[in-house]
């Protein structure tokens, strides 16, 4: 484990965090349960202003509950939270005036048009008639909704609804935006578009983003820091690189044409690596790797220097299943494929 990684249950920077001016969210010991079911079990979060923070976890880990609490939608059972410097319990309206929330389930009015939805937000933000109209037109243009502006939202596609949803969140120029699974259920192209929009927000306006996701790739693409939530507890926190380094699943598999080449390769690799996983019958070796081009080139150069040629090369990048297996010693819950993986390993 690297230095920056924090094991769950160890209080971090507690006490001083509340006074930290540059922290957008600072939560200590966040707890929430529904009846007997403990959803959040003492979660500490520290989100630096102007950064993108991803809360990563499988379904039912408590991600949505965390967002609902931090965005003042529901109350917590325990813990102290400051959002944008305001106490969540004491000054909910002060918190609400600086945040924007785009939830997992689209928060748009299906009986209104896209333009009317945005105007509704402008009115509720008290922008004034002219300013509201201008902001609406600008957002419709920016989110590629101008053509469908006067059509009922109930006829929009999933991607359009999600874009309108985010546009509505942006009407009030929030400093902190919560995105609860912003791309769940979207097709790959809409997902890419969403990622571009999110990156643009951070680059152009310097907003802070707190997003939740089930996809390691998404967290990897967008987030400065990632916290992994499992059964209501944080099991790890760090950058994407730091998390991936924890995962044994990232490797390159090389297959060779004949036993001679195989032995030569093992010989060459053994100079720098110990205990290389190999399969003598299949003539394959597995070299731990982060899958980057630079390290692949280094690996191939090493083999080249020994005049060994690989027949086939495949890159295995770690996914959320690997992260969970590595961090919790068990597969992520509620997916059958993860269970299978764990058995075959």
């Amino acid at each position: 484990m690297t230095e920056n990684l924090t094991a769950a249950g160890v209080p971090r920077r507690a006490g001083s965090s509340a006074d930290n001016a540059s922290s957008a969210i600072s939560a200590v010991g966040l707890r929430k349960s529904y009846g007997e079911k403990l959803v959040l079990d003492g979660v500490d979060l520290e989100v630096v202003e102007g950064s993108v923070f991803a809360l990563l976890g499988p379904n039912g880990a408590g991600k949505t509950t965390a967002v609902q609490i931090l965005s003042t939608l529901i109350g917590a059972d325990g813990g102290r939270v400051r959002v944008a410097g305001h106490d969540l319990v004491g000054e909910p309206d002060a918190v609400r005036s600086v945040i924007g929330v785009t939830g997992q389930f689209s928060a748009v009015d299906g009986l209104l048009s896209g333009r009317e939805n945005l105007r509704l937000m402008a009115d509720l933000r008290h922008l004034g008639r002219a300013a509201g109209r201008a902001r609406t037109a600008e957002l419709l243009e920016r989110f590629d909704l101008a053509d469908a502006a006067d059509v009922l939202v109930s006829t929009y596609s999933g991607g359009m609804r999600r874009r309108l949803d985010l546009a509505m969140t942006l009407v009030g120029d929030p400093r902190l935006i919560f995105l609860d699974e912003p791309t769940t259920g979207l097709d790959p192209r809409s997902r890419r578009t969403m990622w571009e929009i999110i990156r643009g927000l951070v680059a152009d306006q310097g907003v802070t983003i707190f997003l939740t996701t089930q996809y390691l790739e998404e967290a990897d693409q967008l987030a400065d820091r990632i916290a992994v939530l499992d059964h209501g507890k944080l099991v790890a926190e760090g950058t994407a690189q730091e998390l991936k380094r924890l995962v044994p699943g990232g490797h390159v598999q090389l297959r060779f044409a004949d036993p001679a080449a195989f032995r030569a390769a093992v010989g060459a690799l053994s100079r720098t690596l110990e205990d290389i996983p190999r399969d003598e019958d299949a003539l394959t070796v597995q070299v731990p790797s982060d899958g980057r081009v630079r390290s692949l080139r280094a690996l191939l150069d090493l083999l080249d220097a020994q005049s060994v040629e690989a027949e086939e090369l495949s890159v295995h990048t770690p996914d959320l299943d690997d992260v969970f297996l590595a961090l919790t010693g068990r597969p992520r819950p509620s997916t059958d494929t993860a269970t299978e993986k764990a058995v075959t390993r």
Binding site: S71, T72, L73, A94, S106, L124, M168, G172
Partner: peptide, 13 residues
């Protein structure tokens, strides 16, 4: 049952 009510609840209105 609509998501927009949740949005209203997280707005300063």
């Amino acid at each position: 049952t609509e998501g927009i009510i949740s949005r209203f609840r997280t707005m300063s209105i």
